[in-house]
Design a protein around this nucleic acid. Structure first.
Length: 890
RNA sequence: GGGCGGUUAGCUCAGCGGAAGAGCGCUUCGUUCACACCGAAGAGGUCGCAGGUUCAAAUCCUGCACCGCCCACCA
């Protein structure tokens, strides 16, 4: 297996028998490092096998496909400057892996203990990262990096601590009481991004708060507030009105009696209150609403948190204590009604936050947490995109990014989760001093006490992910990798984590390193199921990419993903698409088999394309010219990140032009024992393989290894071959002439099919050719073979062709006449020709009108006018030809 | 409430200023030695609606209608 994939090529392409040996070969040759499952590692180096992640999403598969394609392309160009930071998200996935592992042993993470669990997770993180990213990035690079990778166990933690401490020392991380989103089920704080807002039909209750006089007795007056959350009344510490609201002006400074719980609360004036909404008076609940928290802070109102961590009303909730938030609502509404303080209830839709992980309704709650002060970090991050140091593809997402960055709010980074990066802060048990440190301190720097307690909270997983581009390169150490590969080139990911991950990487990257973490951000769309729905566990419509590779092969999966959606566009995954890609691989396989079998044991050498071309047969010149054009186009498309178009162009070229036309044309000479097409067949095939390799690495490499046995001058491995640049000159003449021949072939085939000519039978045919007569003469054998014509008469004048019992086609440059005694229905023929004549006449008058238009003549560019004139003359000759045919019809 | 995307052949989607494309499906034919995971020939679209810009619009602009996302502290 070290030198070639031996044995005959089976009739059908079988990914299972092909991928593993190729994979093995690459590994043996040191093109990349081993992974745990070399037999069926579906995405070569980068896609971690199932027993490593346990969680492999189609999103990863898509990311990896595009990253890998771009990297392979650049490597083949011999340009070592493309560096892709790679797929993240070892974090969450890894926890799941370890938990599943433990479950097999009948244990839970709690049995293992925190530090032991953490150690095991880190072990996996190191391994996964080494597989999906670093290794990927270093594909084909020299070998000193294993050590680096496998010391990553500690690396990321060090990077996280270092970053946190720097931010803390710069005053960009702080601890404080703010309203955060609390998930009562997960028992943790969440960032704003981890909350999904859902429009919900709810109610707006209008509640009367009795006013008190200075002695504290009710005056009979009321202030009416509107609320969607009456249960939070027990946490109210004020009522706010707009200072300019005439309805309430007189009430400012007075005291209201809070219903049910009977607290005395002040009425304050605050600009934040909208006069249009509700009654214009707002109950202020600083403990349970972010706006109210701010209003309360401005007016010195106390903060009452009336719920516990499970969102049950607590001891501050008076008569509601102990009730769940929903029960509390019913209870208090009933109470208000009984007290005659409920003025009315109206329907009201508003959005309610849900935990993005478990979908529980989150509770905004005042809590002491750690925050990142984001505004100073956002400023350079905005600049970097604005001035083009970072380009987001597609461009429209730059606006989305800007909008978010410009309205960014402080980021709550502490989580009360069980596992994660611990916040590197210690509290002194004796003097309460707070110490942020990279290395665990042994004594309080202030009082020297050893009574230190580390903050029990962990960091938001996106905090560490935000360091990915440099933490994986060994930062904070000054490593060779960091100097070489940072800033990286392209970050590829789904648009759904633009804020979560990309924005944070840019902010933290620029803060820590002073440089952008990457130059381009390529955002792909989301893969949806066949019905267009998002794939989610709860819907049960999640597709495992490994199942796909198992069924259709890795190349088919990759090609489908790559073709799937343009940048930033979602696409639906259908079995039909996968089948189509698989069929394409098979098509390539069989065309290659044909070439290899035709070459046989007598090896051929690759032709000197540039030197020999003009003397070659027309079809050889044509296909070589086309292959150059395709190579140029592919390079341009890849440079523009138009991966899906790249796939399309290659698919069309290989299937339609190479297989359907050129191969069939080449057979004509091959059947006569002429081996002259073989070098060209081999040349265009190997060019196609190189072009396709980034997208379908396995099948192309396998074919390459077979081809190498028969063609001299091919590189040892396709994975290290050069990428075609399409530097050969375009052969316009050959392309035009082949076009004319194809037209003739198609016309005869069409006539045959329409007349029901026996497919085996040869027919006589006349081609009336004027300008292209020489071309048709040259291509006689091709036309005769591909259209089953014998003999083909190339004539100058229509009158030299038979006129009775013939079927005819009038083409742009030629007329095709096929005598078919007994198969011709004169009336039918006349109808057909008449219809075509009418169409051609309409075309002529349309073009005449257009060309007669002064405006068009004076304003349209010359080449367009010339093109239109050409069209007109073609249409005219078509009209003349058709008229001629009609008069010939008996 | 803002913003973005979609609306093109029966289905899924490309194309995004110069004569409507692909895959699948459909119809008719075909097992001549690369491939039935195939070949040949075909049918099938006034490119959501209404205006506008332009010599020229599926393609640019405006408005509208559905569908889908994202963002937003009007209680």
């Amino acid at each position: 297996m070290t030198d070639k994939i031996t044995g005959d090529m089976p009739k059908a392409y079988d990914p299972h028998s092909v991928e593993a040996p190729i994979y093995q070969m690459w590994m043996d040759k040191g093109h990349f490092k081993p992974v745990l499952n070399p037999d069926r590692d579906p995405f070569c180096i980068i896609m971690p096998p199932p027993n490593v992640t346990g969680e492999l999403h189609l999103g990863h598969a898509l990311t990896v496909t595009i990253e890998d394609a771009l990297i392979r392309w650049h490597r083949m160009l011999g340009d070592p400057t493309l560096w892709v930071p790679g797929v993240d998200h070892a974090g969450i996935a890894t926890q799941n892996v370890v938990e599943k592992e433990l479950a097999k042993e009948g244990m839970s993470r709690h049995d293992l203990g925190r530090s032991e669990f953490e150690a095991r997770v880190w072990k996996w993180v190191g391994q996964i990262r080494s597989r999906i990213s670093i290794q990927h990035m270093r594909l084909g690079a020299s070998a000193d990096w294993d050590r680096e990778v496998f010391t990553l166990d500690d690396g990321p933690q060090l990077a996280v601590r270092e970053t946190f401490v720097r931010l803390y020392n710069d005053g960009l991380v702080y601890r404080g009481e703010r309203i955060i989103n609390w998930c009562p089920r997960c028992q943790t704080a969440l960032s704003d991004l981890e909350v999904d807002h859902v429009e919900t039909q709810g109610s707006l209750w209008y509640v009367r708060y009795p006013l008190l006089d200075e002695a504290g007795n009710p005056t009979g007056e009321y202030v009416v507030v509107a609320t969607t959350r009456p249960e939070t009344i027990v946490g109210d510490t004020g009522v706010a009105v707009n200072p300019d609201d005439d309805r309430w002006k007189a009430f400012i400074g007075r005291t209201a009696l809070l219903p049910v719980i009977e607290h005395h609360i002040p009425i304050v004036a605050d600009e934040a209150v909208e006069t249009e909404f509700g009654t214009g008076a707002v109950k202020v609940t600083p403990g349970h609403d972010p706006t109210d928290f701010d209003i309360g802070a401005r007016h010195g109102l106390p903060v009452i948190v009336a719920m516990d961590s499970e969102a049950k009303m607590n001891e501050h909730a008076g008569p509601l204590a102990g009730l769940d938030r929903m029960e509390a609502r019913k209870t208090i509404v009933a109470d208000l009604e009984r007290l005659g303080l409920l003025e009315k209830r109206v329907d009201h839709t508003h959005s309610i936050g849900h935990c993005s992980r478990c979908d529980t309704v989150v509770e905004p709650i005042a809590s002491t947490q750690w925050f990142v002060r984001t505004e100073p970090l956002a400023r350079p991050a905005i600049e970097a995109v604005k001035d083009g140091r970072i380009e987001i593809i597609p461009r429209r997402f730059e606006r989305v990014y800007m909008h978010w960055m410009e309205n960014i709010r402080d980021w709550c980074i502490s989580r009360q989760l069980w596992w994660g990066h611990r916040i590197p802060v210690w509290y002194c048990g004796d003097c309460a001093e707070l110490t942020a440190a990279v290395v665990d301190p042994t004594e309080c720097p202030k009082c020297g006490s050893a009574q230190l307690e580390q903050d029990p909270d962990v960091l938001d997983t996106w905090f560490s992910s935000g360091l990915w581009p440099f933490s994986t390169l060994g930062w904070p150490d000054d490593t060779e990798s960091l100097r070489t590969f940072y800033p990286t080139s392209v970050l590829e990911t789904g648009y759904d984590i633009l804020f979560f991950w990309v924005a944070r990487m840019i902010m933290l990257g620029m803060y820590v390193t002073g440089e952008v973490p990457f130059r381009h951000v390529y955002l792909h769309g989301l893969i949806r199921d066949a019905k267009g729905q998002k794939m989610t566990k709860s819907r049960g419509n999640v597709v495992d990419p490994l199942d796909i590779t198992e069924k259709y092969g890795t190349d088919a999966a990759r090609f489908t993903f790559a073709t799937g959606g343009g940048p930033g566009n979602d696409f639906r995954l259908f079995d039909e698409k996968l089948e189509s890609s698989r069929n394409f691989a098979n098509k390539l396989w069989n065309a290659s088999r044909f070439v290899i079998q035709s070459i046989g044991d007598e090896n051929v050498a690759l032709p000197q394309v540039e030197a020999g071309a003009p003397d070659w047969p027309l079809e050889d010149r044509w296909i070589v010219s086309r292959s150059h054009a395709v190579a140029r186009e592919v390079n341009q498309l890849l440079a523009d990140f138009q991966i899906n178009e790249t796939c399309r162009v290659l698919y069309d070229f290989i299937w339609n032009e190479y297989c359907d036309w050129y191969l069939e044309m080449a057979k004509v000479r091959l059947r006569e024992g002429d081996r002259s097409p073989l070098p060209v067949l081999a040349h265009v095939l190997q060019t196609s393989l190189r072009l396709l390799h980034p997208l379908m690495p396995f099948v192309t490499e396998t074919i390459w290894q077979h081809l190498r046995d028969h063609v001299d001058g091919l590189d040892e491995a396709l994975i290290t071959a050069r990428f075609p640049l399409g530097e050969g000159e375009a052969d316009v003449e050959a392309e035009e002439q082949i076009g004319a021949l194809m037209d003739v072939v198609r016309a005869v085939r069409n006539i045959r099919a329409e007349r029901g000519v026996d497919p085996v039978r040869y027919v006589e045919a006349y081609v009336v050719a004027d300008g292209v007569r020489h071309t048709i003469e040259n291509g006689r054998q091709i036309v005769e073979a591909l259209a089953r014509v014998r003999p083909l008469h190339v004539i100058a004048d229509t009158r030299d062709a038979p006129s009775t019992q013939v079927a005819a086609a009038v083409l742009a440059q030629t007329q095709v006449v096929v005598p078919l005694a007994g198969l011709i229905d004169v009336d039918g023929e006349r109808d057909k020709l008449t219809k075509q004549l009418n169409e051609a006449k309409a075309e002529v008058s349309r073009l005449q009108g257009k060309l007669a238009d002064e405006q068009f003549r004076s304003k349209a560019p010359e080449n367009v006018i010339a093109k239109e004139e050409e069209k007109l003359s073609a249409a005219r000759s078509r009209v003349a030809g058709l008229e001629g045919r009609l008069t010939e019809l008996i």
